[in-house]
Design a binder for these strands. Structure first.
Length: 923
RNA sequence: GCGCAUGUGGUGAAAUUGGUAGACACGUCAGACUUAGGAUCUGAUGCCGCGAGGUAUGGGGGUUCGAGUCCCUCCAUGCGCACCA
């Protein structure tokens, strides 16, 4: 009886499907555990061996938890809206729904091959109206909400209206700190004023508070293509396709007011298990900084200049001001003498793309001719313009302190501006020193103070004098939440007289209409603008972005068929947080931040009971490709083997890894691979053609992709699963080598032979296990338990190998041992485990077996072979009882002839003895 | 430039708290069985050396009886951010 993995795997996959083995109930007395993989986008090119890595890890963990007695939710579905499907539709005329459908069935077929324990009854796709009905519904909740800064929670907009009716907006400042009410030019209004506003005026104001709001924002507009492009479709200021110029264009956009959640998104990081680097990426993205806004008078002008600084303590070191070229003050303060120079500079800056400006390292700028006045000492401070100051951050203006800031220092040197030193010997005159620990000099009332401490003093003084305020700034912007595209969720919004009216929840879903053409609408609007039946209903023509559906999908899995709610409170209270989330790092600041924000909003509004979606995040590494090269001799169709290539002038050419066995090229397959190789000739070494290798990204273009279907077909799903894990730590990136898989395949065959021999047939028996055999088993149970729990699957696989090797050594074919081994192997290799489990006479599924209990008493040792060092160098080992005392060990060690030889007759200074570890004799 | 991560045999890697470096595999070499082997099994395999032994975890330095592991410094690679005031 052979290990016939193909039949075994097909058989059990069918059986598990038929018996509903992976169906998960929301009603269970067992403790829950929620394992989730990042939502896949079903791309048209299919899976390569790198894609399932995370799914295998999560699958093993899910099955492990199930054996440990948990009710495990491990679902899968599809993030099915997105640009590639729409692009494919434009190029090939296939409706996105059709191509997406095809991609999904292919994706599903590939996944099924590998034997995952997903509960497919919970599957959904974001493009299904049954699903996006609830995406639209959540959008409406966000639209109907504002962030109440007093309670620090999302709150219904009606409560805001009530407050306005009672006391105006005195208690609720407009979130955007530059917004002014069009009618009054002010930021504050009274109850009476509110009552006097028209509906449009009121709605415009409310829009400034809503968590989902509409505003105007810049998009990448490509006139030639007549469409809006995503950032990654723009390369070096031109469109990726066609290379047409791309300009920034202001279009009406929807946004999520994620900035209001900045602090809570930061604070929440302390309560979740993400890697440090992931937390840091999010922290950087949010970019919180503390400082002050200070307003300076301008000499001979009624205008004032407000700057944002994180270092108010350096106020006496300000030698000049720099404002962004877009700054509104420029035209008011520029002196007539500087007029021309300023105009020229501003024009120069405008002619440059954002990219060019960001890449620019050269210092440039121009003096406006105006002076600000330092409020503390009355000093005149020249106001300059330079592109290194960004209009979009802070106030678009800075106070420059060259002795403490590198860019300011370079600028001062470049334009010969005198530098004031406020930190004495800490500043060497050559380079800025950004220290906060220096004692201040030349700083009036701050003299002698340590900078760090002076900050608070200055801020208080500034506020006291009414010339500025304490200010916290964020790099993060509100998230753009609309796309001028077809293949996305429609907004449940109607526009009438310039007012956005939300649709009633009862009208949802607002279904995406069928279109014949995916051409953009007029003036940068999306394809929906071309449909009269749509525009006549005055419906919003933008659609939602890719991350809309993925911001809450983890909740839908809990209650996927619910028609009356996005997810019942009962279901979300039962499943709660995702206990383990596995996925790549590419979603570090996008999806992970947005879904965290949605969760917090839903929590605030009382729809769910937890405010962080993911308890623990594990980032899987990338599987890289291991490329193979052949070497073609210049100007010929002759190919020389790696070892001989230096004797010729050659070009390295990528060759399909699937026609190379290890490094040996299958020359016949090569000739058939492509027509121009048909006549290829080879210079071999030892009768073989040896290829060169290099680790690169796995990509079709480099001919180094390996399809999991092929691997599963050749070695089986169990081998594939174990090998993916055996490759190395999940978090780490590592290259795929198909050759190495034979080791894990051999392991499964060896395991099989513990039960059934090719010649003898059944070899397993029901004899009583010996202590040595029990020790091997329990050592493995312990190791597998620990390794699986800490996601160290690679060492787990090797522990199985060690176990099987040792059982073979012991000639152990005992059911008592093997049965337990099968259970702990089940998460890693479910098919073969189930098959052998049944061959041992079991009639129930191994998926529901109980994980064997570790019995430490089998592991106790009475003695150990101690390593004996002399002066820290290992010289020998001695078997010593574990009960031995320090004195006994010293006596044994010093009496040993090898030890004596290395002591060279010298007396010992001391003997270090660490029980159970080692002995070191110091001479 | 700043931040983070990682550097261990020919290759993927292991060493969980400072305690026998290289487990487990791939590859390679030798052998057994065999008509055959790309099946299976046995043995060897970091490097230098016939050997005793020496030497070895990116380089240099330090702490320690003892360092892959801790500290300092330099180098390389990968990732993220990139004029953020």
């Amino acid at each position: 009886m052979e290990y016939n993995f193909r039949d075994i795997e097909k058989k059990w996959q069918a059986q598990w499907k038929a018996s509903g083995a992976y169906k998960v109930s929301n009603d269970s007395p067992k403790p829950k555990f929620y394992v989730l993989d990042m939502f896949p986008y079903p791309s048209g090119v299919g899976l390569h061996v790198g894609h399932p890595l995370g799914y295998i890890a999560s699958d093993i963990y899910s099955r492990f938890k199930r054996l440990k007695g948990f009710n495990v939710l491990h679902p899968m579905g599809y993030d099915a809206f997105g640009l590639p499907a729409e692009q494919y539709a434009i190029d090939h005329g296939v409706h996105p729904a059709v191509s997406t459908d095809q991609n999904i069935s292919n994706f599903r077929r590939q996944l099924d091959n590998i034997g995952f324990c997903f509960d497919w009854d919970r599957e959904f796709r974001t493009s299904d109206p049954k699903y996006y009905k609830w995406t639209q519904w959540i959008f409406l909740q966000l639209f109907h909400s504002f962030y109440n800064r007093i309670t620090k929670k999302a709150d219904h907009i009606d409560n805001l209206v009530k407050a306005f009716e009672k006391e105006g907006n005195a208690g609720h400042e407009i979130p955007h700190d530059k917004y002014q009410i069009a009618k009054t030019g002010k930021r504050v209004f009274s109850a009476a004023e509110w009552a006097g506003f028209t509906e449009k005026e009121q709605q415009d104001i409310l829009m400034e508070y809503r968590l989902a709001y509409c505003g105007y924002g810049e998009v990448n507009w490509c006139e030639a293509l007549g469409t809006v492009l995503a950032n990654d479709e723009v390369v070096n200021g031109v469109s990726e396709r066609g290379g047409y110029p791309v300009v920034k264009k202001k279009l009406r956009q929807w946004y999520l007011r994620i900035t209001e959640y900045a602090d809570r998104l930061l604070e929440g990081l302390d309560r979740i298990e993400f890697s440090e680097s992931m937390k840091e990426m999010q922290t950087n993205w949010i970019g919180k900084s503390y400082g002050a806004e200070i307003t300076f008078n301008i000499q001979g002008n009624s205008d004032k200049l407000t700057v944002y600084t994180t270092r108010p303590d350096t106020i006496f070191g300000v030698d000049f001001m720099v404002i962004a070229p877009e700054h509104a003050l420029i035209k008011d303060i520029t002196s007539s003498k500087q007029q021309q120079a300023v105009e020229e500079y501003v024009e120069y800056v405008q002619s440059r793309s954002e990219r060019e400006r960001m890449a620019e390292k050269k210092i440039s700028g121009v003096f406006t001719g105006a002076y600000a006045i330092n409020p503390f000492n009355g000093r005149q401070i020249p106001i300059w313009i330079s592109e290194y100051v960004l209009a979009g951050y802070g106030t678009g203006a800075i106070m420059a302190v060259p002795c403490g800031d590198e860019r300011d220092h370079k600028f001062a040197n470049h334009f010969n501006i005198a530098i004031t030193n406020i930190i004495g010997s800490e500043y060497d005159g050559k380079e800025a020193n950004a220290t906060k620990d220096a004692k201040l000099e030349n700083s009036d009332f701050l003299n002698g103070m340590v900078m760090r401490n002076a900050m608070e003093v200055v801020i208080q003084k500034i506020e006291e004098l009414g010339i500025g305020v304490r200010k916290v700034n964020y790099k993060m912007r509100d998230a753009a939440f609309s796309r001028q595209r077809y293949w996305g969720e429609p907004f449940p919004i109607k526009w009438q007289h310039g007012i956005a009216y939300p649709m009633a929840e009862s009208e949802l879903p607002l279904e995406l209409p069928h279109v014949e053409s995916y051409k953009p609408g007029p003036e940068g609007e999306g394809p929906l603008a071309n449909i009269p039946a749509w525009t006549s209903r005055e419906l919003e023509t933008n659609t939602m972005p890719g991350y809309a559906g993925s911001s809450w999908y983890f909740l839908r899995y809990m209650d996927p068929q619910n028609d009356s709610e996005f997810c019942s409170r009962k279901a979300s209270d039962y499943w709660g947080q995702v206990d383990l989330y596995i996925g790549g790092t590419e979603h570090a600041v996008g999806h992970l931040l947005y879904s965290r924000m949605w969760t917090k909003a839903l929590f605030d509004l009382g729809f769910i009971g937890h405010d962080e979606p993911y308890k623990k995040l594990v980032n899987q590494g990338m599987i890289q490709g291991s490329s193979r090269f052949v070497y073609r001799i210049h100007g010929t169709n002759k190919y020389v083997s790696l070892g001989l290539k230096d004797q010729y002038a050659t070009d390295a050419i990528h060759v399909d890894v699937n026609i190379v066995d290890g490094v040996e090229l299958d020359v016949e397959a090569f000739k058939k691979w492509r027509s121009d190789y048909e006549t290829a000739e080879f210079i071999l070494e030892d009768g073989k053609y040896i290829c060169g290798t290099e680790v690169e990204k796995m990509s079709k273009r480099l001919y180094n992709t390996v399809n999991p279907d092929d691997v599963v077909n050749k070695y089986g799903a169990d081998t594939f699963r174990m090998y993916e894990m055996f490759l190395g730590p999940v978090e780490q990136s590592k290259p795929w080598e198909t050759k190495g898989i034979e080791g894990t395949h051999r392991f499964l065959k060896k395991l099989w032979r513990l039960f059934y021999d090719e010649t003898k047939g059944k070899v397993w028996n029901e004899d009583k296990a010996t202590p040595a055999e029990l020790k091997v088993l329990h050592k493995t149970i312990k190791k597998i338990e620990e390794d699986t729990e800490r996601f160290s699957f690679n060492t787990g696989v090797s522990a199985f190998m060690v176990c099987v090797n040792e059982l073979i050594e012991l000639k152990c074919n005992k059911k008592e041992i093997l049965e337990s081994l099968l259970i702990i192997l089940t998460p890693y290799a479910p098919h073969v485990s189930e098959e052998l489990w049944h061959l041992l006479g079991n009639t129930t599924s191994i998926l529901d077996a109980a994980f064997p209990k570790l019995n430490e008493s089998y592991l106790v040792e009475s003695s150990k072979e101690y390593p004996i060092s002399v002066n820290g160098k290992l010289r020998t080992t001695i078997e010593i009882s574990l009960d031995a005392t320090q004195e006994e060990v010293e006596k044994i060690a010093l009496g040993n002839e090898v030890v004596q030889k290395w002591m060279e007759g010298k007396p010992h200074k001391r003997v270090i003895f660490v029980k159970g570890k080692m002995v070191n004799v110091v001479v």
